[in-house]
């Protein structure tokens, strides 16, 4: 698992599917504080996806960015809990931001 700031290594096929709709799709790490969104997909092996799912990050889940200082880890609120995520992890969660 990487924990660095290189963000997008998502497969291009997934990229195509995600941006096909008319709503834009962004990595969770790009939400600004206070902004909410809906989780669409998680990219990673079963270890990463399983852990994130247990904390509430599954497709369809509502998330709200609490802290995003621009670099370093972020804090996201999901299912009534605040969760700190490394920027690398937050970049591998695709969300559709709320208008």
């Amino acid at each position: 698992m990487h924990h660095d700031d290189r963000t997008d290594e998502r497969p291009s096929a997934l990229n195509g599917i995600l941006s096909a709709g008319h709503h834009k799709v962004v990595p969770l790490a790009d939400l600004s504080p206070g902004q909410s969104g809906t989780v669409l997909a998680l990219e990673g092996g079963p270890g990463f996806v399983g852990r994130m799912a247990a904390l509430g990050f599954t497709p369809g889940a509502e998330v709200t960015m609490v802290r995003n200082p621009g670099r370093g880890p972020v804090i996201v609120s999901v299912l009534d809990t605040s969760v700190a995520l490394g920027r690398g992890q937050a970049s591998r969660v695709q969300v559709r931001p709320k208008e």
Partner: peptide, 10 residues
């Protein structure tokens, strides 16, 4: 190579 994920409940 092996960098740990930071995922932590507050």
């Amino acid at each position: 190579r092996d960098q740990a994920a930071f995922i932590m409940e507050m």
